[in-house]
Simulated assay, not measured.
Amino acid sequence: MSRLTQRRRITRLTLVGSGGDARQRSSREDVLAVEEPLEVRVNGESFSVTMRTPGQDFDLVAGFLVSEGILAHPDSLAAMRYCSGVDEDGHQTYNVIDARLAGGARLPASVSARQVYTSSSCGICGTASIDAVSKVAHFVVADDPAPIGLGVLASLPDRLREHQEVFDRTGGVHAAGLFDLTGELLCLREDVGRHNAVDKVVGWALREGRLPLRGTVLQVSGRASFELVQKAQLAGIPILAAVSAPSSLAVDLANRAGMTLAGFSRGSSLNVYSRGDRIREPAAGG
């Protein structure tokens, strides 16, 4: 059994007839995306618990620490390891990771005020206040020209969808994809939490020594929230595009950061909410 998916027996009910007054009942197995808790420890001390889809856990933790303003360079992360544990059936679990910091990296002063639990649908609700997540970014995105063609940017949702293997099996996960300015996919991650998917992409980039991610586009499968704009900014990503709508606070932050933010990107059109100067439109009559 994959750690990413599990099978469950379900009953499928279908209305039949023109009046919908009859139904068909059938029993079959369905494939579900796995959701499990992951406790993040930093230097041996519990820092947070998030609900996530298992897989690329080290990327998730590394990206989460970038998003918390703790890491910006791979040299600041000395090591990560799974802490031993067993479930009620005596099987080894992989739901606790301890990250060891190096190179002068420090936990934020607000760590003691942080709530322990974070759901898979919210990446900033575990902080004590909005001030605690308004971190100083290590990288500047406003001066990154990052020119991209409108056709390339509009095509990214379809390119993202082509590589969503877990979604194909379950229909129940979000995706985040990192692309270059030609539309080439650099990294794709899936998770039940959209912020986790982004953290996994950012963590991959940190561990590969790619931060800041200048000249890249982050395409996400859902909406663009404040937290996703913040994560992109802290990773040095100049362009964020979402299939759905942004929030007002996301637009405000993108404007302050000098980030291009696009929403309702559906293959042939998109809405631009900030820094549209990076998007090159086709020449008239071309």
Rank of each mutant, 00 (worst) to 15 (best):
S2Q: 15
R3I: 03
T5G: 01
T14K: 15
L15F: 13
V16P: 04
G20R: 15
G20E: 12
R28M: 06
P37L: 08
P37S: 02
R41Y: 08
R41K: 07
N43W: 01
N43S: 12
N43Y: 05
G44L: 00
E45R: 15
F47T: 07
S48H: 02
T53Y: 09
P54D: 04
G55I: 02
Q56G: 02
D57I: 02
D59A: 03
D59N: 07
L60K: 00
A62K: 07
G63N: 00
E68W: 08
G69R: 00
G69C: 06
I70F: 01
L71K: 13
A72R: 14
H73W: 09
P74V: 04
D75P: 06
S76V: 14
L77P: 08
A78Y: 10
G85S: 12
G90A: 07
T93P: 10
I97S: 05
D98K: 04
D98N: 04
R100L: 01
G104P: 02
L107W: 05
L107P: 10
P108N: 03
A113W: 10
Q115A: 09
Q115L: 04
Y117A: 03
S119Q: 07
C122K: 13
C122W: 05
C122M: 04
G123A: 04
G123W: 01
C125H: 10
A128K: 14
D131H: 01
V136Y: 13
V136T: 10
V136W: 14
V140C: 10
V140F: 02
A142Q: 09
A142Y: 06
P147S: 07
I148G: 07
G149E: 13
L150E: 15
L153E: 12
R161P: 11
E162Q: 15
E165N: 14
D168P: 09
T170Q: 05
G172V: 11
D180M: 12
T182P: 09
L185T: 15
C187V: 08
C187T: 11
R189P: 10
E190D: 01
D191K: 04
G193V: 11
G193L: 03
N196E: 01
K200F: 12
V201N: 07
V202I: 10
G203K: 09
A205L: 06
A205S: 10
R214S: 12
G215V: 13
G215K: 04
T216G: 11
L218F: 14
L218P: 01
L218W: 14
L218Y: 12
S221T: 02
G222A: 09
R223D: 15
A224N: 09
S225P: 08
F226Q: 05
F226Y: 09
E227H: 12
V229R: 00
L234V: 03
L234T: 02
A235K: 01
A235P: 02
G236D: 05
I237G: 01
I237D: 02
P238D: 08
I239F: 11
A242H: 14
S244I: 03
S248R: 13
A250P: 05
D252T: 15
T260M: 11
L261V: 04
G263R: 12
S269G: 07
S269P: 05
R275S: 03
R275M: 05
R278G: 08
E281T: 09
